Computed example of a mutant assay.
Amino acid sequence: MQAKLTETYITKLKHKSERYDVRDTVERGLVLRVGKKFGAKHWHTFVYRGSKRRMVRLGLFPHMSVRDARMAAIQAKANANAPWTPEHIKTVANLFEEYRKTREPKMRAWRDVQSAWDVWGEEFLGYLKLTDVSIHHGRELRNHVSKKSTELRGSAVIRYIRPMFSWAVDESLIDENPWAGLKATAVARPRDRVLTNEEWQKVWDATFKDNLGAYFRFLMLSAQRKDNVASMKWEEIHGNLWTIPAEKFKATKKESAKAHEVPLTPALIEILENQPKRGPFVFGPTGLKQLRLGSREKDRLAKKAGVDDRRLHDLRRTAATRMTENKIPRFIVKRVLGHADRSVTAVYDRANYREEKRQALNVLSKN
């Protein structure tokens, strides 16, 4: 199908059961492709490198006008010798695999990206050809996740997956970011829940009725992140000191992460001494792999404790609060939690503060 493409003519084009192309009679090689599901109208042009021809995506109508599309087509032909997308990257799933290889070693939050892809993204996007991806697919994914889960999660999934397309543009794997204008506005409010002394005691008592009680008690008395405790290995414990390796410790950038020392109080040592050594991991049913907690286990503990509106991270926040309420300096609490110290003094101060941290953690043993 050919026509002299104008804004009026394009606006009147309707989507059909199958996608179709309209070739511009003014600029040779310029094509408007009308999608079959949402009727999205994408500009493309054909370029040649030697005897090989390929289609290059230019933009989306009406964001890209007819005049701009013709100019972009001319420019694309002039840049025909630019790097081509590797042959093995044809679908979004292929693109994600390349993205994973590059970004996983550098991203602290990669596990969240991988989870968003595995649970939601792969089913909706994986099979799509890179040339067919549009902002409509992103909106459809966001709305589906929001409906099945929450609006907050729907926005989070988009924020985790969307940077992949920006990365692909930077790497010259695609010509344009199809999700550049995709909105993900729902943002979680900062949580400030702190358990009262009575609630703290209820949760503590409930751990003795749960088969994962040792894990929960260690979490409460160490004030460490739940994932670090869940992945604790026997080899990380030396005497009365637990060292969380740099590669497992949370940091803004992986290259800036450092090992974190947690002095073990008598109460923490007692918990460890009562744990059977069935494998490399301290906690978990078999000790052969890292403990993975789902909402079922967390809800079970909350039900036994009779404490509503409680998350595992609330225990860490409450532990920090209990230490400061017992006259432990905030500086030491910060060291216990392993929060980064970005002050100039930190560059010179290389003390480990083990005894000060041990005294602070002893406060948590006094239920």
Rank of each mutant, 00 (worst) to 15 (best):
I158K: 04
V187D: 09
Q201C: 12
W204L: 15
E255P: 09
L221W: 12
G213F: 12
L241F: 01
L241C: 04
S146P: 02
K258D: 03
I174F: 07
S231G: 11
D210I: 01
R225A: 01
M232T: 02
L221A: 11
K254M: 12
E199N: 08
I174E: 07
A184S: 13
L212C: 05
F249A: 15
K183I: 10
E140T: 07
I158A: 04
E198W: 09
W234K: 09
V194K: 12
E171M: 15
H260I: 01
N240A: 14
A184Y: 03
N177T: 12
K253D: 13
R217N: 02
T243A: 01
E199T: 04
A180Q: 14
P263Y: 08
I158M: 09
N211P: 09
S149G: 01
D205L: 15
T196L: 07
N228G: 05
E247T: 12
M232F: 10
T243P: 00
F218Y: 12
D205N: 12
A214H: 11
L195K: 10
T185I: 10
G213D: 02
D205C: 14
N211F: 04
N228D: 11
G154P: 05
S155W: 11
M220Y: 00
R159I: 08
A186Y: 14
E255K: 15
R225Y: 02
R162S: 13
T252Q: 14
I161P: 01
R162K: 15
A257W: 08
R159F: 05
W204Y: 13
P190Q: 09
A257S: 15
K253P: 01
R217V: 01
